[in-house]
Amino acid sequence: MESKNDELLEISNLETLDNYLSNMDNSKSNSYISKIPEVCKEYPCCLGIDEAGRGPVLGPMVYGISFCPVNEGSLLVELNCEDSKVLNEKKRDDIFVDICKHSNKIGWAVEVISPNKICNSMLGRSKYSLNQVSMDSAIGLIKAAINGGVKIEHIFVDTVGPADKYQAYLKNLFPKYKITVENKADSKYPIVSAASICAKVVRDHALQTWKCKEGHEYTFKEFGSGYPADPVTKKFLADNVDVVFGFPQLVRFSWSTASNILKDEAYHVEWEDIENEAPSPISNSTITSFFKMTNQKSEKPLNTFFSDRYLSRKVDL
């Protein structure tokens, strides 16, 4: 095991980000929070939340938050924090580096939710939706900021599902703060744009540095963006099926794009029914049936000791 050195783990540029991402256990969820700027502990702050990589069939979903004192709002505009989707990759990387450079004023945190974690939640015994995974992640990040001492005043969230419901839910959990949940908040509020850029940059770099635990040496070029419509991703999925195991853990099995390919290309797998089969009703025999002659020898059923343990007699002695 490598020793965990806090100095080494600090993400201050793209190199240290790649280093962090390639050393994490990518079958689990991993969270990172930047150093909390002193000003964020002193002055009331705004905090933005957004996610990246919700739709893709490959790779992690990344939740991001960023925070800075309300009166430093102009800094975000100076850094050109805009909706991460309208910026190209290079521009996003540059802004991310700028955010890191202003670590005395802006703080940020991300949770990298691994594809394996996403499938495990969605394909577990009790169904746990992607929306629930998302909300838990957002709440976890807000709590991490609170625990770090950030003096939060106003939380801005890019919506997951219906905005009013989500807003009421968060308000209930965090009654002390002003909360704004809006559709397309990432293009309206620079602090959400900053969170969105952090999340998107981390997601992109997580894919670029992805190492399959199964030992496959796929590169980013071979699996593409991960969006189901990307022809590179489509080809990657079609070409890399294992007939028993399906795909490496890079792939989200719970996406129909992936499961449809397995339906055609891999062996069929039958899972136990979640509902326990209802015990068959006791057959009521009519009283006259006892007097009827039958040549069927009634078979003595095995004691429940055996049936409970799925033991049966295979050979007559």
């Binding site: 079958s27 495990n120 490496p248 797998v269």
Partner: peptide, 21 residues
Amino acid sequence: KYFLQTPIEKEILSASFRGHP
């Protein structure tokens, strides 16, 4: 190659098969 197992607590292991925990 594919069936990756991690010990999580005393005697119990965790793994995934086709995304199922």
